[in-house]
Design a protein around this nucleic acid. Sequence first.
DNA 1: CTATGGCACGGATT
DNA 2: AATCCGTGCCATAG
Length: 486
Amino acid sequence: MLTQRQFHEHRPLTTAHLAQTMTLLSLSAIELRQKIESALASNPALELLEERRCPTCLRRLSGNAPCPVCSRPQTIAVDQPIVFVSSREDFQTHTSTRETETPEVGVPIAANPDDLPGFVLRQIAPELDPADRPLAAHILTSLSEDGLLGVPMAEIARYHHVPLDRVQNVISLIQHAEPVGVASPSPQEALLVQLEVLAENHSVPPLAYKAIREGMDFLSRHRYNELGSLLGISTAQAREIARFITKNLNPFPARAHWGDINYTSQKAEPNTQAYSYPDVVISKLNSETEESPLVVEVAIPLSGTLRINPLFREAIRQAPPDKTEQWKSDLEQATLLVKCLQQRNHTIVRLMRRLTVMQRQFILHGDAYLQPVTRAALSKELEVHESTISRAVSTKSVQLPNGHIIPLANFFDRSLHIRTAIKEIIEKEKEPLSDTQICKLLEKRDYFVARRTVAKYRSMEGILPAHLRKPNHNRRNRTHKTSQTL
DNA sequence: CTATGGCACGGATT
DNA sequence: AATCCGTGCCATAG
């Protein structure tokens, strides 16, 4: 049990406090913004202090501390990341200046999270027949919050007096822009488009298409045995497929990101989570050199610092008698919120500091270098309950120095590095290698997994068993990068 | 006999 | 407490 900090408030409210800390911790930056905004609106004791920028690097800072990047000690160890809380989303100003120069080229991460239509439009502009612009505009403004097409295609066609297939063409163009699958009429179609795009650069389980096309119903309900019999495969295999799909595809393109998807959350949750909005941004202090400390910015989606309005604290003494109770409780709630917020940030900062040290290689060099770390181990180190880590990790996404945005949970993926290693081995193999042989090769790279597991990963990646693979003399070279910055 | 896939158990995660 | 994931054991295919 963590005794955390003893708060010197006369009313500690420990249970309420703990409960709220938990909730706040599990909120992503976007959700947190809503929460704070509503608190600000309803509680006069809260006050949003103006944002403060570091005079040198223009980072937006939270609280009163000096800019941790610019005021760092000269002698800073390379493996010692600089971790701090930063107060608004547009870190992009200093990490990527390209964006402002060429707005046509959509760099996904730099998008304003509130402007999905414009973001997509910029990407497709070069390929879009100017005559179709109104169509595209119409489509993009009719998107639902999830990024699906809210109105029937026929309606759009009728409205503009154009043939249906022309609308279809525009939609198809839009679907292939980031976030892939937007403007699909249904989650199902969004998945299909994503799968198609994914298949260009990766191998995908061949049955995934059929699973989505025909087994969507089972898929969304986790009815794996039914799905299995539909596809003519075992339940376990069906689960593999489903796993692949949930892991790599997103039925609601405008939602968070590749990764965690809620098939079940069909309930009208006002989840306004914008697409690709990182909760944490990791960059290199000096992006030129290889040996450079990491800079980790934990996002607070507000421009400024939240605090208790000191005037309110004063005023409460002379409150009109009928209001004292109300004001008191306002003040109480406000302090609670602020404290919890601080604690949330504190926890995340500690978490990220430890995590970035352990996963430095992964952050810099990609999937193959991911260290297997369990949440449990980390929770022990940080002396918090494991569910705390779990909550903190599962809802958030991180932007890596290479610009990719991934779920923070990926930092704990126990199999990713092995899977990429297996893919590499098979890419390079001359003759088909059996699982056992692959297993041995993995051992040489210090990856110790059971032979059985190799088989699983292989099928997970949609790679056929050895006896069904072709001898690989001139297999296509793996020069495809997933998303070149164009 | 070897290579793989199915099933089930136990630890990790949520 | 329910679910997911890596593994061991066994059956089956070649």
